[in-house]
Simulated scan of single mutants.
Amino acid sequence: MAILFIVVAVFILFYINKLTNALCVQKEIPEERQPKVFRTINVLITILLISSYVDILLKSL
């Protein structure tokens, strides 16, 4: 189960990065601010994925 969750989490992170790139292009965010946008979104998504994993892990016990 953990391996499946990790595979799905990696797919979600790559897709979110693709969407973030589209957002930066559409909103014409300057190049110097883009790394901060990517970092913020990646940290928030990672926190969401970890909390989801812990929730699933605790419910299965």
Score class of each variant (00 low, 15 high):
Glu28Lys: 15
Leu13Ser: 08
Pro30Met: 07
Ser52Thr: 09
Tyr53Ile: 02
Phe11Ile: 09
Ile56Gly: 05
Arg39Glu: 09
Ser51Val: 07
Ile6His: 05
Leu57Ile: 05
Asn42Ser: 12
Lys36Pro: 00
Val37Asp: 01
Ile41Lys: 01
Asp55Glu: 14
Ile29Tyr: 01
Ile45Tyr: 05
Gln26Tyr: 11
Asp55Trp: 11
Tyr15Phe: 12
Ser51Trp: 03
Leu23Gly: 06
Ile41Val: 15
Asp55Ser: 15
Ile3Arg: 14
Lys27Asp: 00
Leu19Thr: 08
Gln26Asn: 15
Val43Pro: 02
Ala22Gln: 15
Lys59Arg: 15
Glu31Arg: 14
Val7Thr: 12
Pro35Arg: 09
Asn21His: 13
Ala22Asp: 14
Lys18Asp: 02
Arg33Ala: 01
Ile47Pro: 00
Leu23His: 05
Ile45Lys: 04
Lys18Thr: 02
Val37His: 03
Asn42Glu: 11
Leu61Trp: 11
Glu32Phe: 10
Leu13Ala: 05
Val7Ala: 11
Ala2Gly: 15
Glu28Trp: 05
Gln26Gly: 08
Val10Glu: 09
Ala9Asn: 01
Val54Arg: 13
Ile3Met: 12
Ile50Arg: 03
Phe38Gln: 09
Gln34Cys: 08
Met1Pro: 05
Cys24Phe: 00
Glu32Leu: 06
Val10Ser: 07
Leu58Ser: 14
Gln26Ala: 14
Leu44Tyr: 04
Leu49Ser: 04
Glu28Ser: 08
Leu44Thr: 13
Leu4Gly: 07
Thr40Gln: 05
Met1Leu: 11
Pro35Ile: 00
Glu28Met: 09
Leu44His: 01
Ile16Tyr: 07
Phe14Thr: 06
Asn17Lys: 04
Phe14Arg: 13
Pro35Glu: 03
Pro35Ser: 10
Glu31Met: 04
Leu49Cys: 03
Thr40Met: 12
Ile50Lys: 10
Ile47His: 03
Lys27Gln: 10
Tyr53Gln: 03
Arg39Val: 05
Thr20Cys: 03
Ala9Gly: 05
Arg39Trp: 03
Ile50Ser: 10
Tyr15Ile: 03
Lys36Leu: 07
Leu48Gln: 10
Ser60Arg: 14
Ile29Cys: 02
Gln34Lys: 15
Ile6Gln: 06
Glu32Tyr: 07
Phe11Ser: 14
Glu31Leu: 07
Phe38Pro: 01
Val43Ala: 10
Val37Phe: 01
Asp55Lys: 14
Leu48Tyr: 11
Lys59Ser: 13
Leu44Val: 14
Ile12Cys: 11
Met1Trp: 02
Leu13Asn: 01
Gln34Ile: 11
Ser52Lys: 02
Val43Phe: 03
Ile3Pro: 02
Phe14Val: 08
Ile3Glu: 13
Thr46His: 02
Ile6Met: 06
Ile50Leu: 13
Lys59Leu: 11
Glu31Trp: 04
Ala9His: 12
Leu19Val: 08
Arg39Leu: 07
Leu49Pro: 04
Cys24Trp: 03
Val43Thr: 15
Glu32Cys: 07
Ile12Thr: 11
Val8Lys: 15
Lys36Ala: 13
Thr20Pro: 02
Lys18Met: 06
Thr20Ser: 10
Phe14Met: 07
Gln26Glu: 13
Tyr15Cys: 04
Asp55Pro: 00
Pro35Lys: 09
Lys59Tyr: 10
Leu61Lys: 12
Tyr53His: 05
Met1Asp: 13
Leu57Ala: 12
Leu13Asp: 04
Ile56Cys: 09
Val10Phe: 09
Leu44Met: 07
Leu13Ile: 10
Asn42Phe: 01
Val43Gln: 09
Ile12Glu: 01
Arg33Trp: 00
Ile29His: 01
Val8Pro: 00
